[in-house]
Design a protein around this nucleic acid. Structure first.
Lengths: 344, 344
DNA sequence: ATGAAAGCGCTAACAG
DNA sequence: CTGTTAGCGCTTTCAT
């Protein structure tokens, strides 16, 4: 199974072939040739030799010496239909720059994150990209944050502004929710409901409340907890007598939205005439239902490459990581009812 | 941003605290205590000291010395709705054993794979898990395979038996296709079609042909190329006059299946009465359409942990990696028509 | 049963 | 401009 692998080329071999010392070879290969004013001829010979032998520094040796790892840690809660693209961006982008992305799914769990952080620290990562949503209580992540302070080049992706001593990016759903709510109000909806996992929908609920307020609407907002996106589960919840007046549902995912549509129809309601339904994540399936499902979209797919790019610039050139905002979008489709926003 | 991190604990400190030499400390911590008959008292003191100081060996130093990396490479073409779970299994499982998973999305592209392999080799991975479907022409992967021979603990996941000098697992859709085809034939279907990306559906087409043969059926099989799973694209294809007699569609993904259902309905066909439709991947959305979509399911979710487990056993205990088969399943739902298989 | 010493492969002061 | 030298932190003979 395992054959005798040809022992990897070492710096010594390159130096010998180029007819210089290891020092010179090393300097050239690390790009210090010009700075140290090494003879152009030597530079070229070294580079040629390296290419010819297919030399690549042993990362464990140079890592040990330089006290750095050429590894970038990524702690992200992967979910939703674009998680794969996101992950792909991280690892591909890192590889293109000669780095390794050590990617872990944090599942937004503080204990898990703590142990993953420990592992990444052991590996002396050169930088860390971490997704950390505003916790409640606010001190929930205190230990993690103090741990982060000991790491270089920390970049945090979060969902909402929050006093957090790291640069990063805010992916806010505030604006998308505002658009969605405005649309629903314009269509005359009065009784809103949030449907889905309670855990994690706090942000959505707050956002909707704020949106309703800012539009000075007196519409009601019900919170329906649907842990699983099954037809039966959702049906049971929506059958409750208290919930019969609901005319606008914001679901936690597109799956839940689909289940809700099926359940409501079964009860004789027409979608979107009687009840408007909006999903979340804009999965590729959303437009492919018999009634295309409106959704709210996070632009994860372009995000990964951008963040990794910045990270590497920060590591290599010391460019400061900055805080930015990236809004999500409301994607209108038939299930939201009414004419699409922006139509006269 | 970066604070003065407390310099990490080194072996020296542990040895001093335990009152032994570095040698002894190292041996104990690597589990050689008993073998070297080190005094039980010393063993305990060392372990205590290590725990107290929170010592963890610098992986770069021990990696350099031991000529190994505690890293496991994963080259996989991530796709389908369960890709995230698969990825999560790989990295979590590796972490639990103190390894790092270096995961790259190979996208089944030979050039990409070659460059990713190079990177992994530089990193001296202790093992490699790679997804490599039977290529055509068969020698397409020759370079990659000869590269793989130079790596330790290679484990290949593939789709079909094929002379490949590595242990691994075969995820075969043969059986699932047979079940699906049998079901369709039992329901009296005569004109089959495969609908989806042509690239990558060769295996499916062959499997269906073999299934039809083994059932001695004279049903026809049309190959419809639908690069994108959009309503319009699929509609255009299915509107072609030649394709009006089709009564059973095996789609490349559940998305394509959904698009096909919409397109066919628009043309006045009833699903599943006039045309049976079967998707692929069994995405969580499949059961949530107004007409639940039958599908074919790959058990990716359990696969990742299993493979990684074996890999680590192979690295640490030299247990041989073995070749196994894992069948996919046909998941009946209403879109496939007829009574579910197994019903009287 | 334990410790001193050598060295994994590389890089960066420091002398020439 | 180039080479000699001294480690980075750890593991492992080999002596004691």
């Amino acid at each position: 199974m395992k054959e005798n692998s040809p022992s990897p080329v070492r710096l010594k071999a390159v130096a010998k072939l180029a007819g210089v010392s290891m020092t010179t070879a090393s300097s050239v290969l690390n790009g210090h040739g010009p700075r140290l004013r090494i003879a152009p001829a030597s530079i070229e010979r070294v580079q040629l030799a390296a290419k010819e032998l297919g030399y690549h520094a042993n990362p464990f040796a140079s890592g040990l010496r330089m006290k750095r790892s050429y590894c970038i840690g990524v702690l992200w809660s992967f979910g939703g239909p674009y998680a794969t693209q996101l992950f792909r961006c991280f690892s591909t982008q890192a590889m293109q720059h000669g780095y390794n992305a050590l990617v872990y799914d944090s599942m937004s769990d503080a204990n898990l994150i703590a142990s993953q952080l420990k592992q990444l620290k052991r590996w002396r990562v050169d930088g860390l990209i971490i997704q950390l949503y505003r916790p409640s209580p606010l001190n929930y992540y205190d230990e993690i944050i103090s741990e982060l302070r000991t790491l270089p080049n920390v970049f945090v992706a979060t969902n909402t502004k929050w006093d957090m001593p790291f640069p990063g990016i805010i992916q806010s759903m505030e604006n998308a929710l505002l658009q969605a709510v405005r649309h629903l109000l314009r269509c005359g909806r009065k009784n809103f409901a949030v449907l889905g996992h309670l855990t994690g929908s706090k942000e959505k609920i707050d956002g909707i409340r704020r949106a309703l307020n800012s539009e000075s609407s007196d519409a009601s907002l019900a919170i329906l907890d649907a842990p699983e996106p099954t037809r039966e589960g959702v049906e049971a919840i929506l059958s409750h007598p208290e919930h019969q007046s609901i005319d606008a549902i914001l679901a936690g995912t597109d799956e839940v939205a689909a289940a809700a549509i099926l359940a409501l129809r079964k009860k004789g309601k027409r979608i979107p005439e009687d009840v408007a339904v909006i999903g979340f994540n804009d999965s590729p399936f959303a437009p492919l239902y018999d009634l295309p499902i409106a959704s709210i979209r996070r632009h994860d797919d372009v995000l990964g490459a951008q963040i990794m790019e910045k990270m590497i610039a920060s590591i290599e050139k010391g460019e400061l990581l900055s805080v930015e905002t990236m809004d999500m979008d409301f994607v209108w489709r038939e299930s939201a009812g009414g004419p699409p926003p922006g139509t006269a």
